[in-house]
């Protein structure tokens, strides 16, 4: 069988979601952000909620998420996305509202906002990208940076005396009465990505059921920040991040 007999519209089994724009992403090669953006777009497409979804983008690499997912967006100040989402969802309860936040945004400067939004049980979705580093500003230590991990502001490795231990924010979020679904996923493989997509879909479905806040952490790779190749950084993530940030549901009710 010739290739031209296979490459026909009727044989197409996977293509770019129309909810993704045609812009080339500014992310580094192999960056997990792109994969997660795609999964969100696919969920929005499959649920048919493009006209009803409002995204809140953070400060950090994914500040430009609005360039890639073709929905209405609000761009928040650093860490404040859950406050924007709170008001948006309360004022427009028929909308699907999600924040997309990195570890610096959510677990450092925005801890008050995320904890209180989750504790109030706002009917929003939180997508939390944890790559243990500040990507946009050039690889500084994040609250989730692993012990011993070298970054530009922990050049000799993170130590407990100097920096304290990594903040397990997702475990903390799971304790809050307002959250209905708290899960930790990843996107380094096709199987992991498919599971993450199911988690994102469940989170969006929850928000329509007024069950409270759904929180999806995606343990991610930042190969530029980690100074590894994309493939090596995925391997490093599985080996080093997963023991500290184990994959799976923390809460589902």
């Amino acid at each position: 069988m010739e290739l031209k007999d296979i490459i026909k519209p009727e044989n197409k089994v996977y293509s770019k979601s129309p909810v993704l724009t045609n812009k080339v992403m500014h992310y580094c090669p192999g960056c997990s952000h792109g994969t997660v953006h795609k999964l969100i777009a696919e969920v929005i497409e499959e649920m048919g909620i493009q006209e009803k979804t409002i995204g809140i983008s953070p400060v950090g690499c994914s500040v430009f998420a609005y360039n890639y997912i073709d929905i209405d967006w609000q761009q928040a100040a650093h860490g404040r996305a859950p406050a924007l989402a709170t008001a948006t969802k309360r004022l427009c309860p028929d909308k699907y509202v999600f924040t997309y936040q990195g570890d610096g945004d959510l677990a450092s400067i925005g801890t008050a906002e995320i904890i209180h939004a989750c504790n109030r049980g706002e009917n929003i979705v939180v997508i939390f990208i944890n790559n243990a580093i500040y990507g946009m500003t050039g690889g500084q230590m994040a609250p989730t940076t692993l012990m011993g991990m070298k970054t530009s502001t922990s050049p000799y490795g993170r130590t407990e005396e100097l920096h304290g231990k990594p903040l397990k924010i997702t475990e903390l979020i799971a304790q809050l009465e307002g959250t209905c679904y708290v899960t930790r996923q990843s996107v380094q493989s096709a199987a992991a990505s498919r599971k993450t997509k199911r988690a994102i879909r469940k989170a969006f479905e929850n928000s329509a059921l007024n069950k409270g806040t759904s929180f999806v952490e995606v343990v991610s790779a930042c190969n530029s920040g980690w100074k590894l190749t994309p493939v090596k950084s995925n391997e490093w993530m599985v080996e080093n991040m997963f023991p500290s940030y184990p994959i799976g549901d923390l809460k589902d009710r």
Partner: peptide, 27 residues
């Protein structure tokens, strides 16, 4: 190695830049 491809979509699923389209036929 086009003859190896089964159209499983794994490559497209993990592609961060969504630049792969996949086709599949049963033979």
């Amino acid at each position: 190695f086009p003859e190896n491809c089964t159209g499983c979509t794994n490559c497209a699923t993990v592609c961060p830049d969504t630049c792969i389209t996949v086709y599949r036929v049963k033979v």
